[in-house]
Write a protein that binds this DNA or RNA. Sequence first.
DNA 1: ACCTGAACACCGTTCAAGT
DNA 2: ACCTGAACACCGTTCAAGT
Lengths: 288, 288
Amino acid sequence: MASEAARAKRPPRTSVWLEGKPPGRSRKPDPTGRPDATGDISGASGDSGVSGASGESCDADHPSGLDRLRITAVSVRLLDAEGLAKFSMRRLAGELGVTAMSLYWYVDTKDDLLEMALDSVFGEIRVPDLTDENADWRDQLRELAVSYRTVLVRHAWISPLIGQYLNIGPRSMHFSSAVQAVMRRTGLAPSHQKGAFSAVFQFVYGFGTIEGHYVQRCAEAEVSQDEYYRHAMGSISEKPEFQGSFHQETGESAEAGGGDTVEEMRERDFTFALELLIAGIEAMRARE
Amino acid sequence: MASEAARAKRPPRTSVWLEGKPPGRSRKPDPTGRPDATGDISGASGDSGVSGASGESCDADHPSGLDRLRITAVSVRLLDAEGLAKFSMRRLAGELGVTAMSLYWYVDTKDDLLEMALDSVFGEIRVPDLTDENADWRDQLRELAVSYRTVLVRHAWISPLIGQYLNIGPRSMHFSSAVQAVMRRTGLAPSHQKGAFSAVFQFVYGFGTIEGHYVQRCAEAEVSQDEYYRHAMGSISEKPEFQGSFHQETGESAEAGGGDTVEEMRERDFTFALELLIAGIEAMRARE
DNA sequence: ACCTGAACACCGTTCAAGT
DNA sequence: ACCTGAACACCGTTCAAGT
């Protein structure tokens, strides 16, 4: 019952992809590079350097060579390099060689921008050939799950955004329709497909989220994943609460089982969990 | 390769729970209310009002009645009420009737504070009686999963924090040891227990995250969950990308199947997914 | 031992003004 | 049509100073 009635500036915002519902707002006339065609910046990780004002494609109407496509691409690069916390409109503008206010010509809010960046990386998920009638749905499910996980780890910043936005951009939709198409082929009753969908992809989401953050944390601390693991392990075991077991996010007892690396263990766990889920689908189908 | 070598102020921060590792820092002498005993603020949702300076328990050394316990409790209340985005040190201080700088006597950074708040709500998860030898591990797993989900929905702000921090506070550890104890009782080989653990609890994490955010979004927009669903549904189906299916986070085809509410569908999906996971564990155990 | 004021280096966003 | 400067209302955090 906090008294905050007198500040309803905008209606609570839904999604960039749903803009134009209240058509009163002075909308911009669709500047070049509608994010429907954000361009494949797929494995863009390598090209470091984050170059400054490079103004290549600038014509009369775009003196700074700005458009949604370029803004989105540079946003992704910046988010990959420095994380969501350090990403700001001013920082992005600097990278693009303009002032922060210029961005507001192309985008209504920072949230809109992030939603665009999010959808653009969803385009990196490889989708299996859905027209192949002979393909095994298990293989298709594995491919989607592995690819989704890869994207979550490569772009750790998307995790909180996936939880926050509606994820109804064109690429997000393409991905989720593919998943549903595969679910239809499992043989599960339609009323159960959504539950099974959830089981598999919420698992991948959670797994990729933790993994991605761990990887980033190690990179920031400039230590290997194994070093970080041993460090945290050592610190924790000195605490009184330590009662012989835990291993939340790293990857289970490192030195206990054998000389495996964190990455090997994680790989095993992911694979096993995925097979468990497939076995679960088969078991539930048999019960129907 | 961004040139940011000359700003390494602090080492990248690991966790409040690991403080004192580099013992150089001028640590405060353990003010009353160590978060190990943060107190049960369990179902604290109801008591609205967020009262201002109420200074009840103030003695000579705590003129404002401040301590980690109270700070944590009020943080949770504020985070529940207004979300992570609006939570600030200044806002919290205002609520406690002090200036923002006072908080830094009790806490090193905002991150430390959030980690404490996070661990405190982990204390709300109900843990089954692990000493009962006759209990079915399936029931214990269900209880843990349902309770974890409830907490994720009640405190939607914890989702990004769980991904961000190490979750090694006393209450988090208690929860994860409980989960591991249950996993040991499944009959799975020890080397597979972590994978199965992941499958189940990453699923719950993902599910609870999306659900929690959806619930909060509806609350902010001041519409019912069904209204919000129909609204989003309507907007989406006007788009060209709409190709007959999607239903990412809401709860599947609302009016398609029957007159079910969003909440009923979500309940069914969660239950089915959980049974799928249990069936998966059983199937994998049989294969070993 | 605890708390504060002033200050630093940031934010997102608006708005009137420039070209 | 596109871009900017100045301004508003915020941030987290430090540090010297108060009691």
